[in-house]
Structures are given as structure tokens and as C-alpha cells.
Amino acid sequence: MADPRAREQHAKESDDAKARKPRLVSDLLMPHLLNLYGSRATAQDFEIYAPGATFEDPMMCAHGVKQIKSAFYSLSKVFSESKIVEYNILENAIAPNKVEILIDNKQHYKMFGKELDVMSLIKLDVEDGKIIRHQDWWDGKPLKNRDTVKLPLLRLAHLEASRRGSMLITHAMMGFGKDPKP
């Protein structure tokens, strides 16, 4: 590349390619998460999860991609409208190829003509570009589990069992994580 114009053009093309490439892991994940919460998920949207990923919110606890699919595919069955309407993202590198993403957001739902807005903190633990743990903290409050609450063992076991039971019922009703036909 002796020609200065060719060198300049090559540098410009490299800069253009860098400008197009997302710089943060969250840039790659957010379009899919917006589809999930917006009840317009496709099978490809779930490729952001590692095979053994978990999803937790105050109502249910899903283990594996098929249960996560059931949890999100059920949104359109429960709500006539669902979406994330506002959000701010904070991304922290934890270790090489490990990232924690915090998404402070406002979720909007509509059910039986009534509108409901939920303030939420979505916490994502990501390894090698795949979500391994997805938590949705409603009102920014940590989920109640063995790590966060000092409840009597029996009450805690009941709470966790009811969240798992809710997930299993939803999973069965949603066809065990099968993708809907296009």
C-alpha cells in the first residue's frame, strides 16, 4: 500500500467497520430483550441464553432455555400489551469474558383494559456473550431466595417451591418451551 490515497481509504474503511460494530455486550442483547418483554420474541431471540441459563422474577424461577421461552411466550397470553418503555444500562466487566449488565427500566403492561407500569431492575450475568443468569427485580427489590433473605427454612422453601411450581405450570401450558409456528 504505497499509494497514500489507498492507505487513507483503508484506514477509513477500518474506522467505518469499528463504528458499525457494537462496543458493549448490552448493545447485542438489548434488541432481543426488547422483543422478549414486548411479546414479539422469535426463536432467535432466545439464542442470547446459555443452555443452562436461569430466569427469575418474583412470580417464577425458570431453569434452562425451554423454561425461559415458556416464561416469555406466556406474556402475550396474560397481557394484551407488554413492553419496556424506558431504560438505562450500566455494564460492568467482572472478569475476562464475564460481564454484569444492569438495566434500570420501566415496563408497561395492559390486562383487561387496565394499564400497569412496573419499575424494574434487570440484572444479567453474561459469560462469553451468553446470559447465564437473568433476574428481574420488580421495584428494584432483590428477589427473595436463600442468598438474600433470612427467613425460617420452611417459609423460604415454600416461597421457592411456589415460584418453581408457577414456572412448571406455565411451562406445561406453553407447550414445554416450543416455539410458536410463524
Rank of each mutant, 00 (worst) to 15 (best):
P4Y: 06
P4N: 05
R5F: 09
A6I: 08
R7M: 10
E8A: 12
Q9Y: 08
Q9P: 00
H10T: 15
A11M: 13
A11Y: 08
K12I: 14
A17D: 13
K18H: 10
A19G: 10
R20N: 15
K21Q: 15
P22F: 12
V25D: 04
S26Y: 11
L28D: 05
L29Q: 09
M30V: 15
P31F: 14
L33I: 15
L34G: 04
N35P: 07
Y37F: 15
A41M: 09
T42R: 10
T42Y: 12
A43G: 11
Q44Y: 03
Q44M: 08
E47Q: 13
P51T: 03
A53V: 02
T54E: 12
F55S: 00
D57W: 12
D57F: 11
P58K: 07
M60T: 06
M60Q: 11
C61V: 02
C61P: 00
A62V: 12
A62P: 13
H63A: 03
G64F: 07
G64K: 07
G64S: 04
I68P: 01
I68R: 01
I68V: 04
S70P: 04
Y73L: 11
Y73M: 06
S74L: 04
S76G: 11
S76E: 10
K77E: 07
K77L: 06
V78R: 08
S80V: 09
K83R: 13
Y87I: 06
L90R: 10
L90A: 07
E91Q: 14
E91D: 05
N92E: 14
A93P: 07
A93V: 12
A93D: 10
A93I: 13
I94M: 09
I94L: 08
P96K: 10
N97I: 02
K98D: 02
E100D: 13
L102C: 06
I103W: 01
N105P: 00
K106I: 13
Q107E: 10
H108A: 08
H108F: 11
Y109A: 03
K110S: 12
M111G: 02
G113S: 07
E115R: 13
E115T: 12
L116A: 04
M119Q: 06
S120C: 07
L121I: 06
I122A: 06
I122Q: 05
I122K: 03
I122T: 14
K123H: 13
L124C: 02
V126C: 05
D128T: 01
G129Q: 02
K130M: 05
I131D: 01
R133Y: 04
R133M: 04
Q135S: 03
Q135A: 15
D136Y: 09
W138P: 04
D139S: 14
D139P: 03
D139V: 03
G140Q: 06
K141H: 09
P142N: 09
L143W: 06
R146Q: 12
R146K: 11
V149N: 01
K150I: 00
K150E: 00
A157S: 14
A157W: 00
H158F: 05
S162D: 12
R164C: 03
G165I: 09
S166H: 15
S166K: 06
M167D: 05
A172Y: 11
F176T: 10
K178R: 15
K178P: 00
P180I: 04
P180A: 01
K181N: 03
P182A: 14
P182C: 07
